[in-house]
């Protein structure tokens, strides 16, 4: 049985841990609201761009000289998985879920005889992926130095990916990131980003008029494709930010509650041993008095 002093020390240490987790929970809740607002603000741009892409892509898709970012390299042997993780921990199972999804996809691709490489964004995915695929990481992007990864980071990542694609390092790239559904649920999502998947159906312009392009359709498309890629990456960065805060809030809420339970248990134990000590003392005194 632990001594009274030891118990008191433990209670105090759990109490201070609880304070930390509670603070982190509240910070996450405040940041979550901001991250969600940012994700919502980005939606109009993404949806408009997707509309434009859809109408353009359907016009150019049949051509032989369609841009490579749209048409692909013509083979599908080498895959690149772009995995987006957080930089900080304390967010429950978020990162391990993403990594698990990425590794499952990689193994499935390997089983089909394809080669798989990784491009990592964020710190937390590095160690587990390196352990599973020691030589497959061909690049990583550090987002730990910026406070809120934003469009500029997305631009840099996109530029690097396009460079690697043009350099013939891979044929198909998939993006893996969590989709923020709620503070409790963040599902890992897998999405093909290179070559840009042809939109399912083009939105027909019901005005019936012929759209004029300046310069030509293909020039516009070549300029639009990298931008589309950037927008996708930007969206993923926003999703990870919202997911991180959401997961962190939930995890810290749990931790605070656990700490509360632990404190209660320890306090009961502490009181019991205190009473036991008093009883023993009393018995000793009474026994001493009777002996006289």
């Amino acid at each position: 049985m632990a001594s009274l002093k030891e118990l008191k020390g433990r209670i105090n240490s759990v109490k201070s841990t609880q304070k930390i987790t509670k603070a982190k929970q509240m910070v996450a809740a405040a940041k979550l609201r901001k991250a969600q607002a940012a994700a919502e603000a980005a939606r109009p741009y993404a949806s408009r761009l997707a509309d434009v892409m859809a109408s353009l892509a359907s016009k150019v898709a049949g051509n032989d000289n369609a841009p490579r970012l749209l048409a692909g390299t013509g083979c599908s042997e080498r895959y690149l998985l772009v995995v987006i993780n957080t930089d900080k921990g304390l967010c429950g199972g978020l990162n391990s879920n993403i990594v698990r999804a990425a590794l499952a996809k990689a193994r499935a691709l390997q089983a089909e005889g394809k080669s798989v490489q990784f491009y990592l964004v964020g710190k937390k995915g590095r160690a587990p992926i390196r352990r599973a695929f020691p030589d497959a990481i061909i690049g990583q992007f550090d987002t730990s130095e910026v406070r809120n990864p934003g469009y500029e980071e997305a631009e840099k990542i996109a530029a690097e990916l396009v460079d690697m694609f043009e350099g013939g390092k891979f044929d198909i790239a998939h993006l893996i990131y969590p989709t923020f559904k709620s503070a409790l649920v963040q599902d890992p999502t897998l999405q093909q980003i290179i070559p840009v998947p042809a939109p399912a159906e083009a939105v027909e312009d019901n005005s019936g008029a012929v759209v004029e392009y300046e310069p030509g359709e293909e020039e516009i498309l070549t300029e639009l494709l990298p931008r589309y890629l950037k927008t996708q990456l930007f969206g993923a960065l926003l999703e990870i930010a919202a997911s991180e805060q959401g997961a962190s809030m939930t995890a810290m809420d749990n931790a605070t509650r656990n700490a509360g339970d632990l404190i209660q248990k320890l306090t009961i134990q502490y009181n019991r041993s205190r009473q036991a000590a008093i009883t023993t003392e009393l018995i000793e005194i009474i026994a001493g008095a009777e002996a006289l």
Partner: peptide, 19 residues
């Protein structure tokens, strides 16, 4: 400011796309 010169858009402009 389009890539091939500035253009003004008024109501009822024909469908048009430019970088």
């Amino acid at each position: 400011p389009g890539s091939e010169g500035e253009f003004g858009v008024l109501e009822g402009h024909a469908p048009f796309m430019s970088t």
